[in-house]
Amino acid sequence: MSIFAALADPTRRGIVESLARGALSSGEIADQFDISASAISQHLKVLREAQMVRVRAEAQRRIYELDPQGVNELAGWVDELRSYWATRFDALEAELRKPAGKSRKR
């Protein structure tokens, strides 16, 4: 599953936002939502498969945290969009700053 498909679900986005503040056990994650622990487990599975979260065992607990690989992939995509729009806004600004008497190309 792609990162975008995984993040399309509001519960999964909420999980990612919670993990952005720090690692949590599966129980701590489940406590934040009004759905069953098994449903949270399924959401975590989807996020793991999309490489947005990773898990480690600590005794009997499973600790989840954001996966830097998936986060970096998402950040790279956002950076590309920013770059695209920044150049267009710069061109628009330059055009708008031209004196009113000069004809503008359309």
Rank of each mutant, 00 (worst) to 15 (best):
A39G: 05
I40N: 03
I40A: 03
I40G: 03
I40H: 05
S41Q: 05
Q42L: 08
H43L: 01
H43D: 14
H43C: 10
L44H: 08
L44A: 10
L44R: 05
L44N: 09
L44T: 14
K45H: 13
V46Y: 04
V46I: 15
V46F: 02
V46L: 01
V46K: 03
L47W: 12
L47V: 08
R48W: 00
R48C: 02
R48D: 05
E49A: 11
E49L: 03
A50V: 07
A50E: 03
Q51G: 04
M52R: 02
M52N: 03
M52Y: 11
V53D: 02
V53C: 02
R54C: 05
R54W: 04
R54K: 10
R56I: 07
A57E: 11
A57S: 12
E58A: 12
E58P: 09
A59Q: 09
Q60W: 13
Q60L: 09
Q60F: 14
Q60N: 15
R61F: 09
R61N: 15
R61P: 04
R61Q: 15
R61Y: 11
R62S: 10
R62F: 15
R62A: 10
I63E: 09
I63V: 15
I63S: 06
Y64K: 01
Y64H: 15
Y64I: 05
L66P: 06
L66C: 02
L66Q: 05
L66A: 04
D67Y: 08
D67R: 01
P68L: 02
P68F: 03
Q69H: 12
Q69K: 07
Q69N: 07
Q69D: 13
G70V: 01
V71I: 15
V71L: 06
V71C: 06
N72S: 12
N72E: 15
E73W: 01
E73R: 11
E73D: 07
E73H: 10
E73V: 05
L74Q: 11
L74T: 13
A75Q: 06
G76M: 02
W77D: 02
V78N: 01
V78E: 04
V78D: 00
D79T: 14
E80Q: 13
E80I: 09
L81G: 11
R82N: 14
R82L: 11
R82W: 14
R82A: 14
S83Y: 09
S83R: 10
S83V: 07
W85A: 12
W85Q: 07
W85M: 07
A86P: 01
A86D: 13
A86S: 13
A86Q: 11
A86I: 01
T87H: 03
T87P: 00
T87S: 10
R88L: 03
R88I: 04
R88G: 06
R88D: 06
R88F: 01
F89C: 05
D90W: 00
D90E: 14
A91T: 14
A91W: 04
L92F: 13
L92E: 11
L92H: 06
L92I: 15
L92W: 12
L92G: 04
L92Q: 06
E93V: 12
E93I: 11
A94T: 13
A94C: 00
A94N: 08
A94K: 10
A94R: 13
A94M: 03
A94Q: 12
A94W: 00
E95L: 13
E95N: 14
L96D: 12
R97F: 02
R97P: 01
R97Q: 14
R97S: 11
K98R: 15
P99S: 11
P99G: 06
P99F: 06
P99A: 08
